[in-house]
């Protein structure tokens, strides 16, 4: 239903896109649901950050997960622990270190300036995405790793002897057989990024219209005793989360490939 208000038009003008009787775009950045109106900006920003993070993590996580899945060295447990770190570390700790690393006068920002990067990493969309990528790393890497570990290497050997090169083998054998891993990784990463709070608060701050994501907006509403708005956003998150988890379990059942 939110698709009816295409981002980023919503910031420019008032789109006329009330499609459901209970859903209406009131002002340029407000949506109204069940008679409660909340700012739409955190919702779009959250979806945008989550989508960007998911795409990046699938691109980066795939080779990383492959490498980890087939690593024989005892160094593997160290890397596995590092990848899993965001699962146990308080998000504020991760956020704090990222904040230090992305300090506007720090080495990382200066390094990016060499490549023509303008502005700063902290309190910006780029910063939010970088933070989310680290925070959601295990949710992309672990399902992919398990999928790759369960992949019989003989099948790749068979493909190689049938003249399939590396990329050919990846797309013709690995992707179809590990599709469940890719779907679960993508869904979990997206959902987990939508649900983050600590890291985005630390790295992004709470800049209205720039880095305020849904989870922070809920916090703000509660702080301001705007319980109706908090209810609405929380309810949306709840429904979203249930749907995502059902999707994940559905994927696990539906796309199970019998291997071997």
């Amino acid at each position: 239903m939110l698709r009816a208000c295409p981002y980023p038009k919503i910031f420019e003008s008032a789109p006329a896109c009330g499609v459901r009787p209970f859903f209406e775009c009131k002002k340029h950045d407000m949506i109204e649901l069940f008679g409660i109106s909340v700012s739409a900006q955190p919702i779009w920003l959250t979806l945008k950050v989550a989508l960007t993070t998911t795409v990046i993590l699938l691109l980066v996580g795939t080779p990383l997960a492959w490498w980890l899945a087939h690593m024989r060295s005892s160094f593997k447990i160290v890397l596995e622990a590092i990848v899993a770190l965001p699962l146990v570390l308080p998000p504020t700790v991760l956020g704090f270190y990222l904040l230090i690393a992305m300090n506007p006068n720090g080495a990382l920002t200066q390094f990016l300036h060499v490549f023509g990067f303008e502005g700063q990493l902290t309190f910006s969309f780029t910063g939010l995405v970088i933070g989310s990528v680290f925070y959601s790393l295990p949710f992309a890497v672990q399902p992919l790793m398990h999928a790759f570990e369960g992949l019989p290497m003989r099948l790749l050997d068979a493909a190689a002897t049938l003249r399939a090169g590396v990329l050919d083998r990846f797309f013709s054998v690995v992707v179809p057989l590990a599709r469940r891993g890719f779907l679960v990784a993508g869904t979990l990463t997206f959902a987990h990024t939508v649900g983050e709070f600590g890291v985005v608060l630390m790295v992004g701050g709470n800049v209205p219209d720039t880095t305020r994501m849904v989870s922070i907006a809920i916090f703000d509403h509660v702080e301001s005793l705007e319980y109706a708005e908090a209810h609405l956003l929380s309810g949306m998150m709840l429904v979203f989360s249930v749907v995502v988890l059902m999707l994940v379990y559905g994927i696990n059942r539906r796309f199970a490939v019998k291997v071997g």
């Binding site: 003989r154 050997d157 068979a158 002897t161 090169g165 057989l177």
Partner: peptide, 20 residues
């Protein structure tokens, strides 16, 4: 020379057919 370029056919003990 990489395996795909050796023109070797291989029949595995368990056939190794692509299950998908």
């Amino acid at each position: 020379l990489p395996a795909p370029k050796r023109d070797i056919g291989f029949v595995f003990q368990d056939a190794a057919l692509f299950p998908h």
